[in-house]
């Protein structure tokens, strides 16, 4: 076996760092458990805000769908960036033997992906992207709820 420098030997500091990080988290959790006062826990103690705000409604509500568009766009740009990262870590665009053929492929690749992204941004309406209609619905619902806010006796 031809023995050159193995890759994982270069990453030994990463492993040491990761072990140190895990040990630090465990030590901090244990120390705070040891040092904190152990008092009686009741529903007032374990609520989100012990004094002040009154928690209203479930914490897990439905987020608006239109922000999912940005996640899908991010994944496409992410994959495009990975391909260009491979290209930038090589010498293909500098070597004379390859640069004249590869550069056209790079241009076509970027044009296809960015053309798709631009088409999508044109295709969906503007209010879908910035979430104005969703915000309007939220504001109307919130205003309606505030009118009938404390009929059952809050504070």
């Amino acid at each position: 076996m031809m023995q050159t420098s193995r890759l994982f030997l270069d990453f030994i500091p990463v492993i040491i760092w990761a072990l140190l990080a895990m040990a630090l988290v465990i030590i901090m959790l244990l120390a705070s458990w040891v040092l904190r006062p152990h008092v009686l826990q009741n529903s007032e103690k374990t609520s989100t805000y012990e004094c002040g705000e009154e928690p209203v409604g479930p914490a897990r509500i439905s987020y608006p769908y239109n922000y999912f568009v940005y996640t899908v766009l991010f994944v496409v740009i992410d994959v495009m960036g990975a391909f260009l990262w491979l290209l930038s870590s090589s010498t293909l665009l500098w070597a004379n033997a390859t640069k004249y053929e590869v550069v056209w492929q790079v241009v076509v690749f970027i044009l296809i992906v960015m053309g798709g992204v631009g088409f999508v941004m044109k295709m969906i309406p503007r209010s879908f992207l910035d979430g104005k209609e969703t915000l309007d619905v939220y504001r109307r619902a919130k205003a309606e709820r505030e009118k009938e806010q404390y009929p059952t006796g809050g504070h």
């Binding site: 769908y65 999912f68 996640t71 899908v72 994944v75 496409v76 994959v79 990975a82 391909f83 491979l86």
Partner: peptide, 20 residues
């Protein structure tokens, strides 16, 4: 593997929208 990872990203995005 590079091609497989790219296609996995594409099909996961589509599968998530289909799930919605």
């Amino acid at each position: 593997i590079i091609l497989v990872i790219s296609v996995a990203a594409a099909h996961t995005a589509l599968a998530m929208v289909l799930m919605l």
